[in-house]
Write a protein that binds this DNA or RNA. Sequence first.
RNA 1: GCCUGGGUGGGGUAGCUGGUUAUCCUAUGGGACUGUGGAUCCUACGACUCGGGUUCGAAUCCCGACCCGGGCCCCA
Length: 448
Amino acid sequence: MELQRPRGTRDFLPDEMAKRRYVENKLREAATRWGYGEIKTPTFEHIELFTLKSGEGILGEIYNFKDKGDREIALRPELTAPVVRMYVEELQRSPKPLKFFYFDNCFRYERPQKGRFREFFQFGVEIIGSARPESDAEVIALAVEMLERAGVRGDLHVGHLGIVRALMKEIQPEHQSKIMRLVDKKDDKGLEEFLDELQIPDELRGKLFRLIGLRGENAVHEARELVGDIEAMSQFEALLDLLDVYGLEYQVDLGIARGLDYYTGMVFEIYCEGLGAQNQVCGGGAYRLAQLFGGEDTPSTGYAIGFDRIMEVCKVEYQPQIRVAVICFDDTRKEAIKITKELRDAGFITYLDLMGRKFRDQLTHINTIDNARYEQVIKLYGGMENTELEQTYAIIVGTDELKAGKYTFKEMGSGQQTLMMDLEIISRLKEETKKLNDTMEGKRILSA
RNA sequence: GCCUGGGUGGGGUAGCUGGUUAUCCUAUGGGACUGUGGAUCCUACGACUCGGGUUCGAAUCCCGACCCGGGCCCCA
């Protein structure tokens, strides 16, 4: 093996891609139905886009280089900043709110681990132009729906940075972010030391510790007692009300701080079992970045799903297929190409020998590739589920058949075969396809 | 950035208390069985991650790099 892929990157083979695309489409479907439009931004951007406000955490992880025009370029480590840049650059006068979704690769120079790669994929959603609790709630509800559709169960935690920040309004902003970082790490000791250093009065310190420790049922009431009747507080309460309307299960957690510095209001994270230390599958919140990028101050809210992580834990079913292999002889290859084209035009997955194999070996080969696929199915889906619904058909193109203007239609599972005309074959295959789809639909309804 | 386990043909493995041509299974290409499949047989292809060191001799012992896995940190 001479060459290999760079550390932390992956190749995706056809069967795995099929599974990824399937899940991706589930997420797309959700976003589309909620009225979000897909966007795409460049793979690389000027590095300032990310150094401006993403926070120290990200800086050391950026993949950057100088291009031939001596510009400092960075491969995007995340997608929120590019989306806001795009908004500022060309969409500021568009009717609000703007609702976007994206699915793309990002790059971070980190130590690879379970659910962590140097090139990884994020599926994200942003609402630009609304600061209302309705937007925050919609975004959270959509995130939960997406995960559900992908067959992922997670724990939803919701917090609000405005509340914590209100308590710290006397403290300098850069000290605030440092405090938030310590809060996020749950590093109580470090936090205590830092507060000592800043000579924070005991009263405030006590309030802060109590606030970030608040969880669950009474968290809201207690928070209100601590910070008083501020706007962030009523916003947060309005948000929680809406989450109840959406029927979501959540845990209030005012200790969520997020690693990126640009969040200002609502923040949420969703955690999952089975991913080791990388248990966060989704994170997001409300932020204000537009002004920083030279636009008018514009409230936004959004989140990103760690696509690779949900692929590790998601429970999806293998999608069985009807497939057809055209089998021919040396003297019927041209006729075989014709019927193959007909079948493909009719929409069927159709194989044709490309190796000049003999009749017998072509049949053998069908089994060989089926078996190889089933091996992958076991690996990717954890079992042979739904493969029994799958059927492979062979269309035999021989001189005997051609004389009659027909083909031999052979069911590989049972070995049964009949002489049929092309149109008969097509309608039979359509029937089988419909049967398969109905069965799958039935299973979906049953499991729902 | 820190801690930790591991790298033998494409996949799975034996060898790893140093000693001939590195074992077996599977996959792949070709062939036999000459228009009916998952079998069998023949044949071809194919590996000790890389670089140093110890030694008469290294897949085997030591060091480093690279890669993979796991745990921190951080995040998705």
